[in-house]
Each structure stands twice: as C-alpha cells, then as structure tokens.
Nucleic acid binder design. Sequence first.
DNA 1: TCCATTTGGTTGTAAATACAACAGACTTGT
DNA 2: ACAAGTCTGTTGTATTTACAACCAAATGGA
Lengths: 219, 219
Amino acid sequence: MRKYLGALKSVPLFDGISEEDIQSLMTCLMAKVIHYEKNQSVLMYGDNTNHFGIVLSGNVQIIKEDYYGNRCIVARIEEGMLFAETFAFAGIKKLPVSVITTTESDLLFIDYRKLITSCTEACSFHSRIIYNMLHIVAMKNIILSQKIEFTSKRTTREKLLSYLWAEAQKAGCNTFTIPFNRQELADYLSVDRSAMSAELCKLRDDKMIKFNKNLFELL
Amino acid sequence: MRKYLGALKSVPLFDGISEEDIQSLMTCLMAKVIHYEKNQSVLMYGDNTNHFGIVLSGNVQIIKEDYYGNRCIVARIEEGMLFAETFAFAGIKKLPVSVITTTESDLLFIDYRKLITSCTEACSFHSRIIYNMLHIVAMKNIILSQKIEFTSKRTTREKLLSYLWAEAQKAGCNTFTIPFNRQELADYLSVDRSAMSAELCKLRDDKMIKFNKNLFELL
DNA sequence: TCCATTTGGTTGTAAATACAACAGACTTGT
DNA sequence: ACAAGTCTGTTGTATTTACAACCAAATGGA
C-alpha cells in the first residue's frame, strides 16, 4: 500500500487526513488495490457489489447501454475520483452501468459498509472521511441540479444565457472563461453544436455577450 | 419534542432507529423544532446557515430566481423529507434558493456538523443516521441522473421511450403505472404537453405502446 | 515550413417543437 | 343534477432545431 501513498494523499476522499493516518485507514477499511490493463472490464452491468472504487492512476469510463442496446459513455473518471459510490450508498444492488479502464490503471476498492460503521478504535479520521464522502456526494448533486436547470430551458438561447449567467456568478465577475470547447458545451447543454454556435453569434450581434474562444463577457 | 415522535418515526433519516433512541438523538443533535404559518419565509436566498431541515408536518417549497428575476419552484418538500441538506454538506455557504412554507408547518432543524461528528457517547444509532443520510443524498443523485438521461435525448419521442422503458424496468413488467399526469410528465421531461400528448398517440398508432390514463404498456 | 487535424462559424433544408386555441371526457362540489 | 373546473387529445402555424455539408482559422507535429 505504501507505494500508493503519493496518489492517496491527493484523493479528495482523504482530504484533511495525514499520511500516517491514511495508512491505518487503509487497514481499517480493508481497502485493496487492483492493477488493470487498458480496456479491461472493472465492473459489469448487473454486477452485485458492495464496493466503490477510487482511481489511483489511469482512467476509467462509466458505460451505459440504452434501450436500443447502444453503448454510451456516461462519464470519464480521472485520477483521484470515485466511481460506483452512488450506487453503493443508494443501496442499488444490481449495477445499472459498466466500468472499464481506458488506460492501464490502479484502482482502490472499499466496501461501503466499512465506511459507515466506526472501527473499533473509533479513529478520529473515520468521521473525517465520512464528512468527505457526504461532501463529495452532495457536490455531485449540486452539479447535476445545475445541469438540469440549464438543459430544462426550452430554447438554445435560454440554455446558453442561464449557463453563462451561472458561470459569471461562479467567477464573481462578468468576464470569465468556460471549461468547455464548443462541442463539449453543446454536449453539456444537449443541443446541436452548429445551432449553438449560430445562437452565440446572434447573442453577440444583439450585444448581450462578447466572446473570444473560451473567454466570455456578459453585457 | 415528545409530541413530534409520531412524525419523527416516519422520517427516512431516522429509519432503523427506535423511538427512545430518536429521543436521545434529538438531544445529541441539538435539534430544534420551529412552527411556521402558511407562506412564511423559512430560509432566504443568500442566507448563511449550517442547518438543514426536515418537514415534520405541512409542506415547503424550494424557490429559485432565474437571471430575469422570475421566481420558479424547484421542488416541493413533503412530510418526512429533508431540505437544504445538499447545500449544507456540499459546503455551499450562501443558499442559492429560498424556502417558504405553503401550509402551516412544523420544521425540524439540525446542524450538519453535529451529524458528522460522533457524540461523546459514540451512540450506535449515530452511525445509522449517517448511513441513512448518505443513502438519501445518493438516492437524490440517482434520481437526478435519471432525469438527465431522459431530458438529454433530442426528440420528444426518444425522451418518452427512454422514460417509459426505465419505468418498465423499475416495475419489472411491461405494464406499469406512472406517477404523473400528462402535464406533470411534460414538465418532468421538459417538453410541451400538447406536443407530448400527440407523440404518445403516434407511438400508440405505431404499435409501440398502449396506454389508458396512467397505465402504460410497452409492446 | 508544410501537412494533417482540430476547432469554430455559416448556410440551407427538412424535421421537430412550442404555442395557442378548442373540444370532449371526466371530476368535484353544491 | 348541474355548473365549474380539470384533464387529455387534436389541430394549425410560426418558430426553433437538427443535420449535413462546407469553409476558414488555429493548432500541432514531423
């Protein structure tokens, strides 16, 4: 486990826990690391597991099959991030998604039941990790709610305005950069890229926004 | 606090905790009940609070103002349900929404920091309540993700099919009832009611579904 | 520097949607 | 039983969108 300490330190789930405490914690949680090659299956649709995962190195993708049988990428999980924790804590027994590696990866697995019961020594960092977990799940919640707020608008114009307004709020300034390129923004807002591009230019012509690449300004 | 015991027993956050333990818990968490009249403001946009709420009786609405200043109802919180817990645990200091009562209500308030630190007696039900809280927040997550899956489809037809397919899966049967009337379903899927109604009939004409009121069947 | 690739903007057209207005079936309260 | 209100389906039209195809500018290696 020691070789992974560097990676573990920067995992948000372990924020505020010292290196040595992380070591005890790994034992206390009976965490185990598994190494995967590229494109290996980590968890399969329908699997019954009580574990959630943490990406220590590499990348995994969350895959979902729609009712036509088309596979679609729900999310990409980067280093330090969790996966399948929502299903574990929501008590969903059969995984509704599959998880596969997109690169060679080291993944840490923890049984969610270990996390919510105090260990015998009632370690102080145990309550910290629970706080961190609640924080992470609640943040995901906020992010999902925001996306719904944008995409539930009827027109592309309204979707763009509500998104840009929220970004301006977050930046605390009318001038801000967005973390998406045009295609990614269109995917995020669930609209057509070219239609969105045209609408952005209309908004500019109407003197409601200015933009240059990823730098935007609300007028 | 005793007069609220009946209501407290059916709060999901206290699932699996006995009546007497709930009483100790209320003390341990320093929970307080406040009575509100109809249409009173409970929490205001911009408020800075560490508390989340539980509706013991009555109803509250979560209100958000969009960038035009229009007020819009984000959610209605019924008896037994929590509100503002997402913001508390996500560490969002300034509330981005307002909370108002829609009927005379009794609301219970708990400081989220009390919940994540074990009380001195390391009470066994404390870990249960944390488990329950993680479960509730994770479930909200699942529900939001599902909604995004439906609404991110491009056409009304696809939105309907993916929604109905998910309901059929949930019911474990091709015949099932949905918890919405037409207007509510349209709002949920972010489409126009009349257009959706027309599309439902098209799907029926195409022999893909049958329906009668809220009873649907996938063919 | 050159070439290949990515990214962003433009346009035309067919398709889908929102919106409004209306009618029939069904509920509800008096 | 009646009136008022609600719910659902239907239709026509103006608006909006998706999609495809294309071009120009920027980017990034080799």
